[in-house]
Each structure stands twice: as C-alpha cells, then as structure tokens.
Amino acid sequence: MATEALGWWGVPLAIVAGTLRGSVPFLFVSLGECLTEKSGKINLGLEGTLLMGAMSAYAISFLTGSPWLGVVTAGVAGLFLGLIHGWLSQQPRVNDVAVGIAMIIFGSGLAFFLGKPFIQPSAPQLPTFSLAGWTQIPQLESALRISPLFILGVAIAPLMQWFFRSTRWGLLVRAVGDSPDAARAMGISIFKVRMASIVAGSFLAGIGGASLSLFYPGSWSERISSGQGLMAVALVIFARWNPIQCLFASLLFGGAQAIGPAMQSVGIDAYYYLFNASPYILTLLIMVITCSPKRTLTGAPGALGQAQE
C-alpha cells in the first residue's frame, strides 16, 4: 500500500480519472440520444432507461455471475423501453417530450420497483484494465484503470459519425430527421426508421446504465443516477448532434464531476456546493460563449421534435 500523498497533483489526476470513469454513462446516453434525435425524435426518457439498465445489469450479473450478460440485459431492457417510446411518441398528436417525461417516471419507477432485492447483494463487476502498467505509482495505476465499456463507447462515437456520413442507413436516418416529407416521397417508412433509431438509442442508454452499476461507481441503489441521463440528453444539443463532439462533451462532464471532491481533498473546502455545480456552470458558460444568434445550430435535424401529422 503506497503511502505517499499526491498533494496538488491529485486534482488533475482526479479530473483525468473522473474523465475516464465518470464519463461512460454520459457517453452512451448521449450517443443513443444523438442517434434518436438525428431521426427527428427526442427521447427525454433516457434517464429512466439508464436506471432500468443499471438495475437489470446489476441484477443479472448478481443472479448469473456474468457481468457481460448483465450488460446485454441492460441493453435489452433499454430496447423494450425504447419500443414503448418509439411507438407512443409516433402516434398522431402525441408529443415526444411529454412521452419522454412520462417515461422517466415509468422507467425509474419500474427500476426501483424491480430493483429492491438487489440493493443489498454485491454483484460481480466488469473487469477493468489499466493503461498504466508501466508505472509504479498506484494512484496513477488506479486513475488510468478503465472499463472495456469506455473503450466501446469511444469506438462507437467515430463509428456513428461514419454511419451518418457514409452509409446508406445513416443517410436514411438523416433524411427522415431533416425532411420527413422528402423521405416519404422516396418511399422510406418514417415510422420504421424512427422506431429503429429510438430502439437502438435506448439500447445504448441501457448499456450506459450498466456502466453505472457494474463499473463506476459500481453498485446498485436508487440514487445511483444523479440525473446523468437527463444531463446526457442535454449534452447532445451541446454537442450539436455530432457523435465525436458527444464524446468530448461526455469526457468534459465526467471530468468536471471530479472537481468538487478533489478540491476538498487538498484543502479547498469553501463553496463546495458551488464547486460541485461546476460541471453545470462550465457547460452553460461554454454554450453562452460558443452559441451565436447569427447562425443556426449546425447539425440540428430539421424536423426535430416537430409534431406528427
């Protein structure tokens, strides 16, 4: 057990570590939401999906002893919630934001309801590996310990980018999201494309939940998500519907989460409520600086959130 303290170096280290471990749920949910919104629908209910994913992953990992099976189950649980959202939000006169809010309540209620027996037990966690095999400093070793889910998420971001840019399916999704009328004229089923995008997006969000309960903080409790799902949905707007920028936004947010506690551990203990709010303040500031009324948001799907005819 190493006994040297890191002192001030602990703050950047904690931020790096927080980036690597705290960003995973943001990453998956925002990528899922990015896919959903590219097709022209908003799924605000991913907070509920995240919790459902966290619960089911933990439960299955505990019951079967296989965390990977838990991850898959989390995705499938997300998929089912996505089916509800995809079907309901595409009914005439039904607003997708409203469905999303109802789905937050339904999803988290269901997760809490079914998750009661799994608060107590300890479930097997996903294996992690360290990027810092070369170092003898245990702090660094621990900070650079990352989850395969993180790698997966980082890999999905450029893949999704490529998907949107260069594949026929990606074009379909974008066409449906930008100008449904044109897409319809091309003979594309708007319903099916949007349904597929929502379901796939929810699948990803479910996996994001698995990372909460099986990687970091690695536990199931009803307070496990402090609004990460909702925040990640908002990050998509921040990231201008660009998967690569979703990745950066998630990393930024995950890292900023670590600022408050890390500052206190080196003795900066004033205003810790405000320090704890730093991820939100930071994001808002960046938005205020980078947005401009002179240009519309590039990348915004043209038909986003518009009512179904």
């Binding site: 904690a14 570590a17 409790s221 307070r223 402090s226 990460q228 506690p261 551990s265």
Partner: peptide
C-alpha cells in the same frame, strides 16, 4: 459531498482520498 445520497460524488471523494494516501 453536500448531499445525503450521491453515489458518484461519494465514489469520487473516496478515490481522491485514496489518491492522497
């Protein structure tokens, strides 16, 4: 942590304390 239940912040706090030896 400022909150009676905030697992992520509790985990961050625990980790940064461990980092500090």
């Amino acid at each position: 942590t400022g909150d009676w239940a905030d697992p992520v912040r509790e985990a961050e706090a625990a980790n940064s304390m461990a980092d500090q030896g």
